[in-house]
Amino acid sequence: MTAFSLEPAQLAWCAELRTLAAERLRPLADKGEPGHVNRALVAELGSLGLLGRLFTSGALDLCLMRESLAYACTEAETALALQGLGAHPVHAHGTQEQRARWLPGVADGTAIAAFALSEPGAGSDAAALELRAEPESRAEPESPQGEGPPAAPALAAAPDGPARWRLTGEKCWISNAPEADFYTVFARTAPGAGARGVTAFLVPADRPGLTGRGLDMLSPHPIGALDFDAVPVTADDVLGAVDRGFRVAMGTLNLFRPSVGAFAVGMAQAALDATLAHTAGRDAFGGKLRDLQAVSHQVAEMALRTEAARLMVHAAASAHDADAPDVPGRSAMAKLLATETAQYVVDAAVQLHGARALQRGHLLEHLYREVRAPRIYEGASEVQRGIIAKELYARQEVR
């Protein structure tokens, strides 16, 4: 298999996923409440074995899943992706105990995961995050009324550094918040150290001091803010190594960025197919809409860009699976091209459908709301361009 074609078995699997999305997942999605976790939908993804595949498949398989589900049910695609995004750091960097505690529930759809990186002042600039992880004081408390020997400290530090911290600050625009069961949280453990002073923590939702609120967003999936008021975490909650959490975040994003592009391609393909059907059947000016050269050329352009984006997504995913050295740049290119393409294709589809596409409940009205956010989350388009340029200049310096 190359990056430019799929095997018959892969094509058949994609067709099966589109059918499952339309027949089994779409009805559950329709019953969900916008802005809230649809646990019935997540559980069905688990029963179909799709969530478990998040931990056994490569980047290309993840892209095929996301594109195929997005074509027929964007809510199912997003539910699957959010489980993967929130739980991948646990799968890749967690201890045996962390993985045993949380991953089975993620796989069967009973534990909801979330990836908590963005903050009000640190969205695209992830290295600038300010959520503080402050080490517990080792000071010994005085005994009551100053009588007797001092009481033993409730929390102590390990010989090689703090074993316990308190998280204080805010996270914002976190998908699945505040309804997730656990969060992969990135906090600053070394002030002033930039990307080198960030640590990833696995934080269960029931930790004292952790509260959240939903945000009323354009996208229909749940997004919220989290407040951390001296939330306790210990060395047992660290994912990876202390002060090395930025690597955890970037490794996760390098895997998921091409699949964000796959999500966008699935939406673009759905919009394109709807436009083909509409323009072939719609009577206008003594013929069909497709007979107008301006319309047929527009449809051709939509198809051209969609296929180009799909190929770039597959190439980036294949590079990731092959552990190629240029994965960050390829991932950024795939996400950038595919999300910008989907915005163009969906907008063009709305234009060719006319006012009917803006009616609440129409497929294109739904896609028009869904397609905007991927150009921002997991690194806005401008950030992707910066990553691409950085990789290009770094490569030039090596020559």
Rank of each mutant, 00 (worst) to 15 (best):
L276K: 13
R330A: 15
R330G: 00
A264H: 11
Q269S: 12
V265W: 11
A322H: 07
Y344A: 13
E340I: 07
T279K: 03
A294I: 07
K335C: 10
A277S: 09
D347G: 04
H314L: 14
L364F: 12
E301M: 07
L363R: 15
L292K: 08
P328W: 05
T275I: 10
M302H: 03
S331C: 07
D291R: 10
R282A: 02
G286M: 08
G354Q: 04
D323L: 10
A315N: 08
L358N: 12
A355V: 14
G354Y: 14
A332T: 02
E301P: 00
F256S: 05
A280M: 05
M302S: 04
T306A: 12
R290L: 15
R290A: 14
L289S: 08
S318T: 15
A342C: 11
E307T: 14
A334R: 08
A332W: 04
L292A: 10
T339M: 01
T275W: 09
Q298L: 03
A268R: 07
V313N: 13
Q359W: 07
A334Q: 00
G261L: 03
D347F: 01
G281V: 06
E301I: 03
T341P: 00
A324H: 07
G329C: 12
Y344F: 09
E365P: 00
L289V: 05
A274G: 07
L364K: 10
G354T: 07
F256L: 15
A270G: 05
D291S: 13
G261V: 07
P258G: 13
Q343E: 13
R356N: 02
H320I: 00
Q359D: 13
R310Y: 04
G329K: 03
V295A: 03
A294T: 12
L352D: 05
A357I: 01
H297F: 03
T279E: 08
A309N: 04
M312C: 09
V345S: 01
A300P: 00
L272T: 09
R356D: 14
V313S: 06
F263Q: 10
Q293L: 12
F263D: 01
L289C: 12
A284Q: 15
S296G: 06
L289I: 03
G329F: 02
V260R: 01
A308K: 04
E365N: 15
D283Y: 14
V265G: 06
D323Q: 14
V265E: 05
T306L: 07
H353S: 07
T339D: 05
G287Q: 14
G361N: 12
A342I: 06
T275F: 04
S296D: 06
K335L: 01
A334M: 11
G286Q: 03
M312L: 15
A277I: 05
A338V: 02
A300G: 15
A274Q: 08
A322M: 11
E307N: 11
H362C: 06
L363W: 06
G286N: 08
A316R: 06
A274Y: 08
M267T: 12
K288F: 15
L363P: 00
D323V: 02
D321A: 08
Q269L: 15
A334C: 01
L363Y: 03
